[in-house]
């Protein structure tokens, strides 16, 4: 079952009806990169399938190639999800992020930069006891003007761009288990002229005792000033939750979320 909250908006559309798959290994986007990405970034698994129980929401057309909002919901996938790998078929950086849900639920909202039109995919690795890993996939085609990875971050247009750098905003909703967090960060890919790579590499959620709840490996395609949406089980959604992040040049960021704050 998808865990979307779209029904909380007046007459909000529910989850899209699952499309009954024909050949579960057929690529609905007929993309040349998909076999390579499975090989290079997923370990060339044999047991994989486009899974109608897995949901990926992305706009059919990117209004802003620097901010393409995406939501992956693998809560309907049978079996425990060990990680979710997000790949973008024709991005200069194939892997957008890797999400290790740990004690959180396998649902993640995020935004990516788009360099050119193509498919974005989420691949969930299910590890169930001693059985060999099994992969559930979902994807969406995003039409985009492109340039999202090679344009300078918008913040560099401002002389005071470092002001507010690293600021974290967030909130925890105990009733629904939602956790949202944003960080002010340019997420420079290194592809814009004269601007070296400067991007987040990792973000973790921890409980009050410092034990890890969930972890994100972050790569260049994540949007500038990233905003992330997580889903926690009730016992963790009561908080507090510590958010820690770091970037590729050694900055560390920390925030603390209390329920109802």
């Amino acid at each position: 079952m998808a865990r979307l909250l779209t029904h909380l908006l007046p007459r909000g559309a529910g989850a899209p009806a699952p499309v009954a798959a024909g050949d579960p290994q057929a690529d609905p986007f007929d993309s040349g990169m998909w076999p390579h990405h499975r090989q290079d970034h997923l370990g060339d698994p044999r047991d994989w399938a486009m899974d109608p129980a897995m949901l990926l929401l992305a706009p059919a057309s990117a209004e802003d190639p620097a901010h393409v909002p995406v939501l992956v919901d693998a809560t309907g996938v049978a079996g425990p999800v060990a990680r979710i790998v997000v790949t973008i078929d024709y991005s200069p950086f194939a892997v957008g992020l890797v999400f290790h849900p740990g004690r959180a639920l396998p649902l993640l909202g995020f935004g990516v930069k788009y360099e050119m039109a193509g498919a974005i995919r989420a691949s969930a690795e299910v590890i169930d006891g001693g059985a060999p890993p099994r992969w559930s996939m979902a994807g969406a085609f995003v039409d985009a003007m492109g340039g999202g990875c090679t344009a300078p971050a918008a913040t560099h247009a401002r002389p005071d761009w470092q002001e507010g750098f690293g600021q974290m905003r967030g909130r925890l909703w105990p009733d629904t288990g939602r956790l949202r967090v944003t960080i002010r960060h340019p997420m420079d890919t290194g592809l814009a002229d004269g601007i070296p790579a400067h991007h987040l590499t990792e973000l973790t959620l921890e409980d009050a005792e410092g034990a890890e709840i969930a972890r994100l490996q972050i790569h260049e395609p994540l949007e500038e000033n990233p905003e992330l949406t997580f889903l926690l089980p009730p016992e963790l959604a009561r908080g507090p939750v510590i958010v820690r992040a770091r970037d590729n040049i050694g900055h560390r960021f920390r925030g603390r979320l209390e329920a109802g704050a």
């Binding site: 007046p10 899209p16 939602r178």
Partner: peptide
């Protein structure tokens, strides 16, 4: 609609997917 969506913890992808205000759909 935007204030409600962001105030209830929806991701922007969900606010998009929910579709427009019914009276203006």
């Amino acid at each position: 609609r935007m204030a409600r969506a962001s105030g209830l913890g929806l991701a922007p992808a969900e606010a998009i997917h929910a579709g427009p205000m019914p009276e203006f759909a």
